[in-house]
Simulated scan of single mutants.
Amino acid sequence: MSHTAHIPSHRKPRRSTSKLAVRAGVAGGVLSTLALAGTASASPSEPVAETTLEMPVLDLDLAAEVSSAVTTAAENTRAAAVTGELHAQEEEARTGAAAEAKKAKEDAQKADAEKKAKDEADRKAAAERATRSSSRATLQSASAANTQGSGTVTAPATGSAAAIVNFARAQVGKAYVLGGTGPSSFDCSGLVQAAYRQAGISLPRMSQDQSSEGSSVSLSALQPGDILYWGSRGSAYHVALYVGGGKFVGAQNPSTGIVERSLSYDRPTGAVRVL
């Protein structure tokens, strides 16, 4: 029986041709050495003992290969992570830029709308001012025409009308006090009532009632002593006295007191004639 008949095989999975060749060479050298040693030591009278030998294991530094593979995989993983992070940052930047662009567009649209609204408001305000100026010019023209027109407007006051006008003008500069009936202060209806008292005519105390007295008269045909009212007849909220020349005397308010003003200063709604 061969000396190597019972040597167990320690083959490992085939790796490559070069590795197998190296292993085969080493194994062959070991077997040859064992065969020579067995021949020299064996005795014809003694039986040859069977010996089981371990095949040497060839260490090809597999740990280094595994370490290198792990390192490569880790580097690939890191590279993939970096690439993914860069992609995420790029996407976030694109999203942020889109949001900023959208907001800027909305702000621009809002500013444009506000500008249009302001321009429209300015246009309307200018139109209203122009209308008021035109109306004021018309009133001034009408007042001038009345002053220079018929004798009913420009004729001097006489009789009872003169007494009313003279009294009213004498109160100019005195204070306006709500409920005042003289002699140091008046409210609007208190002044009218006191002026008519000088002509021996008794009038109601309140402006609403005074605007209902006598007969209605056109503002284009006023005579001194006519009662002017603001609001509607029978429910007027303010009264004054026409004194001729396109002017009136009235107790206006606490800040102005009793004043003489042109009709264009505060155009009355209507007038009544009591005389």
Rank of each mutant, 00 (worst) to 15 (best):
I7L: 06
K124N: 12
N146L: 07
D61S: 10
N166R: 11
A144Q: 07
F248Y: 12
V217E: 00
F167I: 05
A42E: 08
S141D: 08
K105G: 14
R129Q: 13
G25N: 09
Q208V: 11
S41M: 15
L36M: 13
G214E: 12
T152G: 08
L20W: 05
G28N: 08
K103T: 13
T72P: 02
V243P: 00
M55L: 11
E120L: 08
T181D: 09
R136H: 15
A81Q: 12
S18W: 07
V26D: 04
S207Q: 03
A271M: 02
T72G: 10
G38I: 05
Q210P: 01
T269N: 07
A79K: 06
A175L: 11
T77V: 14
A79F: 05
V165S: 01
V165R: 00
R129T: 12
A73N: 11
V48P: 05
R11F: 05
S207K: 02
K118Q: 12
A240H: 02
A175K: 14
G25W: 08
D112T: 08
D119S: 09
T51S: 06
D187H: 03
H238W: 00
A127H: 04
V48N: 14
P268W: 02
K103M: 12
V153I: 13
S143F: 05
G225H: 03
V217D: 02
T17A: 15
A27H: 05
V177K: 02
S2E: 13
Q109H: 14
A155L: 07
A69P: 03
V165Q: 00
A108D: 15
A35P: 00
G25Y: 07
L20S: 08
A73S: 11
A88E: 14
I164L: 01
A251N: 02
A104S: 10
T256I: 06
S2N: 09
K12P: 00
G173V: 04
L219M: 09
T72C: 05
Q89C: 07
G38S: 07
L241I: 15
P13R: 13
A5I: 09
L20E: 10
L60K: 02
T131R: 15
L263W: 00
S207W: 03
Y242F: 12
K115N: 09
R273Q: 11
V26R: 09
A88W: 08
A101K: 06
A145H: 10
S32E: 13
A69D: 09
S185G: 12
G149E: 03
V165N: 00
E50Q: 10
V243M: 04
K102H: 05
L53W: 15
Q198L: 04
P8E: 06
K115Y: 04
Q109P: 06
T39N: 08
R14E: 03
Q109N: 15
G28K: 11
K105D: 13
P13C: 04
A37I: 14
T39M: 11
S67L: 15
A108Y: 10
R233D: 01
A121E: 10
A98E: 15
A69T: 10
G200S: 11
T4G: 14
A49Q: 08
A157P: 05
F186S: 01
E50T: 07
P224R: 01
S202W: 09
R136M: 15
S262V: 05
P183W: 04
N166T: 15
V192H: 00
A168V: 01
V172S: 04
